[in-house]
Nucleic acid binder design. Structure first.
Lengths: 234, 234
DNA sequence: GGCTTCAGTCTTGTATGCAAGATACCTTAA
DNA sequence: TTAAGGTATCTTGCATACAAGACTGAAGCC
């Protein structure tokens, strides 16, 4: 569209951070698309046309198509046979269902992490939490969210269960998508931070049952905000 | 290898139930491979060579490669860049981790299902359970396992949470793979059946908390048998 | 004997051709 | 004006050609 004289591929275009080494292109394309979908840059319902993405990334259709399969298995896009691939819809119900499951996944991770966490790791999480508090003070929401995700990811990693990590990784992008909805997170920002504080106390004292319950509630508390948020985005 | 004069494709070979309509081949190939991996017909570590599968299924490499991506996202195979795709290993630790997560997923489903199950659905599950008891009496293990999975699947469906269903579907093939290990299930057969009886009682009385706990234990009880079973298969 | 090197072969990764299904648009008739 | 139908165009799905990385094995060297 931007250039009708389509050069097939002449190197990475502006913004196309594709590693053109053999064997990584499909994976890289999947990562880039995953990122765009997670952040909401590609909103639910958007059609993904193969050739358009090919030209943008400077690759052929094959790696793009393979990336689609990966994303489809992750639930980020729907493959409509013989029709376009579209970013999967994020209905209010879906998000609610997602959060219920995610809360349980995180609760399990929290419980397991309490059994295994080292003193050093407790310090590490503590540092991250402090940074997060600072971000809140300076209203740096993007940085806050990055730290927030990092804390949760580290907790899963510390739990030492690779299956749990895999499940978490498959759901996390969807949660990020939901977070990109207006006001879902921001109206809960301060409360969420206090909850994190309490959670850290439970973690530092290795109180698994308590941490699991706090974690579960941390996510379930977001539920009431969902309807409002989805409605606004529509 | 078996036939150097490679005919590209001349219709579905013996056992190749590929629907050759446009738009379904990759999906069908994925289903067939998933089945083979789940049943243990393709054991962990087996290398999947593209051309070999192409010839067997009578399709080109493209749909096979796309199926690989799907299976990789499901964790059934590992994509080794520039090397073969291999059926992912099923280590003792992996199975243990898998069961811990699966138990929680099923427990959540059980709790949610209790809130929503109708009287008719209770009758339906009851019928399935009775059939299962009959299978046990006649030592028909394969039929028993099919019914067993059906009961669990119906429970997830009744829970009414599509995200939970998606997670369950991504883990279930791995559980089936573990079940294919020698003696993992058979030595627990009778006990497992009694546990199912108790679980049904909780379900029929819609006692969510009780059913969740029974379900969790039902899976965790298998843990002690894992080591032994994995050792035997190695 | 064991290790390294290098050529040949094998297997995978990417690009592209071609056909089938889907979409859009234009014509035509009521 | 609207609805129906048909055609042109677009987009996807599959097959296949070609290239790059990985493997194999034999020869040469220590």
């Amino acid at each position: 569209m931007e250039d009708a004289t389509g050069p097939k591929h002449d190197g990475p275009e502006s913004g196309g951070q594709i590693d053109r080494r053999k064997g990584r292109m499909a994976t890289d394309v999947a990562s880039l698309l995953r990122e765009r979908i997670s952040t909401g840059e590609m909103p639910p319902g958007e059609r993904l046309r193969e050739v358009q993405l090919c030209e943008e990334f400077g690759v052929s259709r094959t790696p793009v198509r393979e990336a689609f399969r990966t994303l489809a298995a992750e639930g980020l896009v729907d493959l409509l046979p013989n029709r376009s691939v579209v970013v999967s819809k994020l209905q209010a119900d879906d998000v609610r269902h997602l959060i219920v499951v995610f809360a349980e996944v995180e609760a399990l991770a929290a419980r397991l992490a309490c059994e295994r966490i080292t003193d050093d790791e407790i310090k590490e999480i503590g540092r991250l939490l402090n940074e997060m508090v600072d971000c809140h003070g300076q209203r740096e929401r993007a940085a806050y969210l990055k730290l927030n995700q990092k804390i949760h990811r580290r907790t899963i990693e510390i739990s030492g269960n690779p299956v749990l990590l895999a499940v978490w990784q498959s759901l996390a992008p969807q949660i990020e998508r939901a977070r990109a909805l207006p006001n879902l997170d921001s109206s809960r920002w301060t409360d969420a931070l206090f909850e994190h504080s309490k959670m850290f106390t439970a973690l530092a004292t290795r109180d698994g049952a308590q941490l699991a319950e706090l974690t579960r509630q941390h996510f379930l508390n977001a539920l009431p905000y969902i309807n409002e948020s989805i409605a606004e985005s529509a």
